[in-house]
Design a protein around this nucleic acid. Structure first.
Length: 682
DNA sequence: CTTAGGG
DNA sequence: CCCTAAG
């Protein structure tokens, strides 16, 4: 028995802060709405990119970067700040892809006969687009999680400082301390609302961060100064604010970007972060992302005339760098396909089966330091997308803030996700009608799973951490995710049928159809994303992104879904109404009218779980429209004219009734109004 | 939760 | 189909 259903993935429980309503509406006009998961996914994507960039290095020897968070004040003073690596720091380590691949796929072939746990684990991982990621939380690192736990705020409560190499003059790099930062986000939000140039600064988030298009590149190799010294200015300019104008002085012996041969054995936490030259963040206009970059530039530096092209010498080295590295096609597309699930399902095909490409470890590493926490984890393999961030050499601190914000967010998201997802073993649970099916030895029949359709609908899977050492994650961070509906049992090996998992295959009831009998999946009780929780709910551990005087900056807020089945909303698959359904609908409406969709639903589609009253209402709407247009303009399965005629008739009738009712009310409301209601009934 | 409409 | 303001 095979029940293909769509699986939904996401960073359970995490939401990306939303922007103010006003900004939202503005943005709405320009870009399609995105859902929380999209942001999360994108964040992940971006992070992958950034991390890859940071971690990458042609010398795949042992590139690694340190991601550490400090609890203490992040006094980014002098190169000294690098005392960093305390025992508790995060370490990302890149390792040859193949090695990992074999570990994931090879050594643990997942077949239907194997432990479902592995199966889902892989599926989940794949869905996350990190098939090739591996995290090991061994070593002294693990210990650190405790600290995090203690922290009320959550894992990465405090700001993560994107620390630069020692070369960077701390005096100028006050991003962290001096800027009374209202937090980048806040700045963004406040400063935004600029003239109505549309989305305003928010587009930054959208374009740069979440779109995951290549936009940011961090090129550690050069010591260019941040440039972009913006002119002061414009209202939209959030970068030129008072002291924020300090210009980063990235001076130092610059090595050409490609040349950073850094040594540092990042693996050794105690050793100062190797700084390959200065860390420079600059804008890059990769041909592939030119458009985006431009956009970004426009948004961030509205009036800046900086000519990216003429971005001096660095440009040269930059391109060199770029060229030398292998751009890894991050199958973003695929990534999203998995998540967004095409309705037709046709879009998803074998292409996904090649989930593993050779990771290109490219780029140069730079000390990348996050502040505050002490959890360590290691990424042994990382898929590197294309390119990213870019900031000029003379950008002001203000602009840095933006970058900071971006990176911070991304990093956090990734770290969280990685930790949560890969930090521990995952356990698969089977849930039937809300109850867990504990006995794995029972047969499907015994548990009733293979029975009626109802059972099937009630079948779900949970994926939850199983690591005792990561209780923290298990309890708070990762709400059990639920794969709503799925195959009764994993079939075939994952590597080949992976895509099948993602397909929400819905076998349309052909021909004679049962308006509702068919086992039809339903998106389930997906909870709709809520807006940014700016408040802490005692049990959700959500954070207050920013509060005055609080350095803690924005973070992804863990949100506990009300539903135990924490799923991320996903657009339902399209299920065209069959003629039979239309027939049923028409009949019901003829009887009940057009204002009682609830009743219509109960009357004619009670058993069709996937047809909500709203759906029925919408269908009626389209039916009316269809009936009014010429047959040539109609699409889809043709609806008998007879039915369409009835639709028009019924529609006319009930519309009249409705008008009648309204008039009646009006009449009663205004006793002086004596217009005979019948007058309009003609 | 339902309606009613716009997207 | 989705999203939501309204009721």
């Amino acid at each position: 028995m095979v029940l293909n259903r769509r699986l939904e993935y996401g960073f359970n429980g995490y939401q990306v802060p939303t922007m103010p309503r006003a900004a939202r509406s503005a943005r709405k006009r320009c870009s399609p709405k995105k859902k929380v998961e999209d942001y999360s996914m994108c964040a992940f994507d971006l992070l992958a990119t950034v991390a890859g960039k940071l971690l990458g290095g042609k010398d795949t020897s042992s590139p690694s970067i340190n991601l550490s968070t400090k609890h203490d004040q992040v006094a980014t003073t002098g190169g000294n700040s690098n005392e960093e690596c305390q025992s508790s720091q995060k370490q990302l380590e890149l390792q040859p892809y193949d090695q990992v691949a074999s570990e994931i796929v090879g050594s643990k072939p997942v077949t239907s006969n194997d432990d479902p746990g592995d199966y889902f684990k892989e599926a989940k991982r794949a869905a996350m687009g990190f098939t090739d990621i591996k995290v090991s939380s061994d070593g002294p690192a693990v210990v650190t999680s405790d600290k995090l736990e203690k922290n009320e705020i959550g894992h990465f409560p405090e700001s993560i400082a994107v620390d630069s190499c020692p070369n960077l003059k701390s005096s100028n790099y006050k991003l962290d301390n001096e800027i009374n930062r209202k937090n980048v986000v806040e700045l963004l939000e406040c400063s935004n609302a600029p003239q109505d140039n549309g989305p305003g600064i928010y587009s930054l988030k959208d374009q740069v961060v979440w779109d995951a298009k290549p936009l940011v590149q961090i090129s550690p190799g050069s010591n260019a100064k941040m440039s972009f010294d913006e002119e002061k200015s414009g209202p939209c300019d959030i970068f030129s604010q008072g002291k924020d104008n300090a210009v980063l002085d990235g001076k130092d012996g610059d090595k050409n970007s490609s040349g950073c041969t850094h040594r540092s054995n990042l693996k050794n936490p105690s050793s100062p972060a190797p700084c390959m030259g200065d860390r420079r963040i600059r804008k890059v206009l990769a041909s592939t992302c030119q458009k985006v970059s431009t956009k970004w530039k426009e948004k961030l530096f509205p009036r800046h005339d900086v000519d990216l092209e003429s971005d001096n010498c660095d440009k040269k080295s930059f391109y060199k760098f770029q060229g030398s590295q292998q751009i890894f096609p991050f199958k973003k597309r695929k990534f999203f396909d998995l998540n967004c699930q095409s309705n037709s399902g046709a879009d998803i095909d074998g292409d996904c089966s090649d989930g593993r490409e050779t990771p290109s470890m490219v780029g140069q590493r730079s000390p990348y330091q996050a502040a505050n926490s002490n959890v360590k984890f290691r990424i042994e393999s990382f898929r590197v997308p294309e390119l990213f961030i870019e900031i000029s050499e003379t950008a002001t601190v203000g602009s840095l803030k933006v970058l900071y914000f971006l990176l911070d967010n991304v990093l956090r998201t990734v770290m969280e996700a990685v930790s949560a997802i890969l930090g521990g073993e995952l356990r698969v649970g089977v849930v039937l009608e809300g109850k867990k099916v504990g006995d794995d030895s029972k047969t499907l029949v015994q548990t009733g799973i293979c029975h009626g359709n109802n059972q099937v609908d009630a079948l779900g899977f949970t994926l939850e951490p199983n690591s005792s050492q990561d209780v923290h994650f298990a309890t708070r961070r990762v709400g059990p995710s639920v794969f709503h509906g799925s195959t009764c049992h994993p079939r075939s090996r994952y590597s080949h049928s992976r895509t099948e998992l993602y397909e929400g295959i819905f076998d349309e009831p052909k021909g004679a159809n049962n308006l509702g009998n068919a086992a039809e999946s339903d998106r389930g009780s997906a909870t709709s994303p809520t807006d940014l929780p700016t408040k802490v709910t005692s049990d959700s551990k959500a954070l207050v992104p920013f509060s005055a005087g609080n350095r803690k900056n924005l973070v992804l807020v863990p949100v506990r879904r009300k539903s135990k089945h924490s799923e991320i909303a996903q657009r339902r698959i399209r299920r065209p109404f069959s003629v039979a359904e239309v027939e049923a609908l028409v009949q019901a409406v003829e009887k009940l009218g057009t204002g009682r969709w609830r009743d219509v639903k109960l009357r004619a589609f009670d058993s069709a779980k996937h047809r909500t009253y709203v759906d029925l209402k919408d269908k009626w709407k389209t039916l009316v429209h269809t009936a009014r247009i010429s047959p040539q303009q109609r699409r889809g399965e043709p609806v008998p004219q007879e039915l369409l005629d009835r639709v028009l008739t019924a529609h006319a009738y009930w519309s009249q009734q409705q008008a009648k009712q309204q008039l009646k009310h009006q009449y009663h409301g205004h006793h002086h109004h004596h217009q005979p209601e019948t007058r309009l009934l003609l």
